[in-house]
């Protein structure tokens, strides 16, 4: 075990090319998924917060339930969509990084939409009369509220990123864990551990932990300083 730790640190310090490749791909996939999912989910969450429509309660319950969607199930759904015989099979996306981005988007979108819905609804409660008095339409209120809730929403988006970068099941199913093509940190850790290559698995594990810790630290610092400075 001790040797494995030492070897792991050596891989990190020496910037082992295999390790660097895996970390880079992981970040590319998860960051892309977070950006695309947030671009859809933030306005969607805000719209659900602002509009009253039949079935709104059901939509909210559905979104909240999807926050707990098991990654393997999300992976399976995307697999069925993208497989040769599936509705989107002709694009040949299965076992590519694009497929992994799509699978992670499916996981992140409900989280960002459901949490931003809560944040925006609270803010709308506070702002509604003032904005209506100023003649702000609901459509116009969406960007205003998203901007005013920006510090809380950073935390929401980072929660989505945490979920994306930490899950194994979805990317394993739709990516296939192909070395150098679709192998990311979590799938590599699973594989290397089962093959007894503990050094690489540990090295990746340490980096993944540091990444998650950094992201959470950032979220905390941004939130706190913003609240102090801007009220």
């Amino acid at each position: 075990m001790e040797n494995a730790f030492l070897a792991a640190f050596r891989l990190i310090v020496e910037m082992d090319p295999v390790l660097v490749g895996i970390v880079t791909l992981s970040l590319q996939v998860s960051l892309t998924a977070v950006l695309l999912a947030s671009a859809i989910a933030l306005p969607l969450g805000a719209a659900i917060a602002l509009w009253r429509f039949p079935g709104r309660g059901a939509v909210i319950v559905f979104l909240n339930a999807l926050m707990g969607l098991p990654p393997v199930v999300a992976g399976l759904m995307v697999y069925l969509l993208l497989s040769r015989a599936g509705p989107l099979g002709e694009f040949g996306l299965l076992f590519t990084p694009t497929a992994m981005v799509i699978a992670q988007m499916v996981l992140i979108l409900p989280i960002v939409a459901a949490l931003s819905r809560q944040v925006i609804e609270e803010l709308w409660e506070e702002y509604r009369e003032q904005l209506q008095s100023l003649g702000v339409t609901r459509l116009r209120a969406i960007p205003t509220l998203l901007w005013d809730a920006r510090f809380s929403l950073v935390t929401v988006v980072l929660a989505g990123f945490g979920r994306a970068s930490a899950e194994v099941g979805a990317v394993l199913i739709v990516g296939g864990n192909i070395s150098g093509v679709t192998r990311v940190m979590t799938t590599a850790i699973a594989l290397e551990t089962s093959m007894g290559n503990l050094a690489l698995a540990l090295g990746l594990g340490i980096i993944l932990l540091l990444l998650v810790a950094t992201v959470n630290g950032l979220a905390y610092v941004i939130g706190e300083t913003a609240r102090r400075r801007l009220g």
């Binding site: 702002y127 009369e129 005013d148 920006r150 009220g231």
Partner: peptide, 12 residues
């Protein structure tokens, strides 16, 4: 225009 008991200001 209306001025409320507790003014609501935007974060800017």
């Amino acid at each position: 225009a209306m001025v409320f008991q507790r003014p609501v200001m935007l974060r800017r």
